[in-house]
Design a protein around this nucleic acid. Structure first.
Length: 272
DNA sequence: ACTATGCCCTGGGTGC
DNA sequence: TGCACCCAGGGCATAG
């Protein structure tokens, strides 16, 4: 599932093919019209065609395509979405839901098996990402911010990491990995962590994201980068989908539980 | 104000 | 082999 490192990897791959190029045509295939949230699919096509992409940014898991009319095309890949640069004559892919044709003759494929991905076109990006918190890589995401937000809530730490109002960009994989790295039981109440533990957790969040980004993201099943390739970071997972295996830090065994409706992996021996 | 649950969607896995 | 069922989960709507 694309989280911050995967979305950032995609952004870096596709940006050079898009910036300063004009959108010549857009196809949204039959059955995929629901991806268009702020407009109907046909309206969205009309709004995009003829626009030049001036920059490509990211906030959390959202990709922000800045357009030359000062609006922003906001894309969220959700669970199985991918944006892949391709050649103009490439045949339609099995799960290709939309296709953007550029005036440099490259095409951008929007591939999304489960059709959860969303598109908005907005004047103010807040309309596409209401109440979103600071990006995990931004200067606003400090230990102090994390401490304040965790202390205001009484939810499991892992659930807090998944809450994009607290910090934007973490999904199920890196929430589990960050809790492991910090030695925190994901079920611990968020308002129950010492300053020392919050400092550890903040550092762990950044280090697991950095490691994943350095390896081009994590692919367990569906994630593909801007060239359609799998990421290389799954070998670095210490707990995610490792239930039944020995812990890499102690003699415990990784377990899998359900927490907030999400599969959650941790070591009961060394995560307290 | 808060937290918890169901929904969207499709493929892969499991059990009978 | 086939078929029914469950699971995967990001963000939103709704319920309590």
């Amino acid at each position: 599932m694309p989280e911050l490192p995967e979305v950032e990897t995609t952004r870096r791959h596709i940006a050079p093919y898009l910036i300063n190029n004009e959108i010549k045509d857009v196809l949204i295939y039959k059955g995929a019209e629901r991806l268009a949230i702020s407009h109907t699919a046909s309206e969205m096509i009309r709004e995009l065609v003829g626009r030049r992409i001036t920059n490509l940014e990211r906030h959390g898991k959202y990709l922000l395509f800045l357009l030359d009319d000062n609006r922003t095309w906001v894309v969220h890949l959700r669970m199985t979405g991918a944006l892949i640069i391709s050649k103009p004559i490439s045949p339609k892919q099995k799960y290709e839901r939309a296709r953007i044709i550029l005036d440099n003759d490259n095409v951008l494929l929007f591939d999304d098996m489960r059709k959860f991905g969303t598109w908005h076109i907005v004047k103010n990006i807040i309309d596409a990402m209401p109440k979103i918190g600071p990006d995990a890589y931004s200067s606003e995401f400090t230990v102090q911010w994390l401490l304040e937000k965790l202390s205001q809530r009484k939810i499991p730490v892992k659930s807090a990491l998944l809450d994009q109002k607290i910090v934007a960009g973490i999904g199920n994989i890196y929430a589990d990995e960050a809790c492991f790295d910090a030695g925190i039981n994901p079920n611990r109440s968020s308002n129950d962590l010492s300053l020392h533990k919050v400092k550890l957790l903040h550092g762990s969040i950044l280090s697991v994201l950095d490691l994943a980004l350095g390896n081009g993201g994590t692919t367990f099943s569906n994630y593909r980068d801007g060239y359609g390739r799998a990421g290389n970071n799954s070998i670095n997972a210490k707990v995610f989908r490792r239930e039944g295996f020995e812990c890499s830090r102690c003699d415990g065994t990784i377990v899998k539980i359900k927490l907030g409706g999400r599969g959650t992996h941790y070591c009961p021996s060394c995560q307290k």
